[in-house]
Structures are given as C-alpha cells and as structure tokens.
Amino acid sequence: MGCCESCFGDQAKDYDRIDGPRETDPLINPANGQPTTQQFGESIPQPSIPQPKQGDEVSALTRILQKTASDTVDVAATEGRGIEQREFNDKAKQYSNKVNMVLSSSGKRYSKQSIPNGVTAPQIILASQPISVADVDLISTAALKASQALKDVKVEHKEDLVVPFGVP
C-alpha cells in the first residue's frame, strides 16, 4: 500500500521532469557517437559527455524504465512457479465447496448439468429403424393441440386482486 501511495504521490512530479522542455530535443544527437552506457537509476549525467542534454535524456529514460519496473506487478514471476496438479484439484474442490455453501444458503444450487449414462451400443440405436409416420403424426397433432390450448388460455376477471382493507 505504501509503495502504491509513493508511486502515485510523485507521479505528477516525475512526469513534469520528464516531459519538460526536453520534449523538443532530438532523441539521437548525431554529433555524439558515444554509446549510451547509462546504468539503471543514474540521474547525474556523466561529466565526460560533451552534451549534457543526452545524459539527461538517458537518465530520464532509465527513470521511466525503473518506475515502470517498480509499478508493474509481474504475475508470471510471482505466481507462475506452477501449481501441482494435486494442489490444483484440491483448490478447485475447496472453491466449489465454498460456492455451493453460499448457493445453498441462498436457495440455489450449483450443479453441472449432466447427461445420463445412456445406452451401451450407440451405433445400434442410431442404425435402428426410423420411427413410423403414424408416430410422427401422433406427436405433431399432440404438439399442435397443446400449443393451441396454450394460446386459448385466458384470464377471466372475477374480482379485484387488490382490495381496500380497513379503509372506512
């Protein structure tokens, strides 16, 4: 928490320093053939460099790098050590138990919809004779009648659902 506060605290200050008038400076100075050997975190330009501006740029760059490195949480490095399969299964079980506990108290239940075990020889069932036309007709008629019946369901008004109670 302290780290975050300090990061955000001086953020504006940092950017002010970086995005100052140096924005217009050339990134590569052709007059300077010296390779950039600035180390991480060095902010003072080397006295041997004839153009001190480049040293500033490099230090600004390293500062950005350093800041980014300190701001970034490397998830892969901290947690990517690989969970054992057994541990993974244990955790999965633990979490699903917790989910079920919460859901059971709220009246719902989490359960994976499972399909029945079914038949032993599917190819025989699939290759069997198709159902007869009479059966198809029977189901079609029944479905048609059911849908018609559903359409015909009407609400008949008998009495008020909301009645005044205790009103003089």
Binding site: N117, G118, A121, P122, Q123, I125, L126, S128, V133, A134
Partner: peptide, 24 residues
Amino acid sequence: MYVITVSQHKVFISKRKYIPPDPV
C-alpha cells in the same frame, strides 16, 4: 432426420435420410 442417443456420457448424433418404415 437426426437421431440422437447418449452413451458413456457422450452424445451421438446421426443425420440420416428419412425413409418411413411403413406406408401411410
């Protein structure tokens, strides 16, 4: 027609020509 059956927690679906077994 599609014929669907279940076996060993797997769903088997076959698309077949529909040739009615008996006349109307």
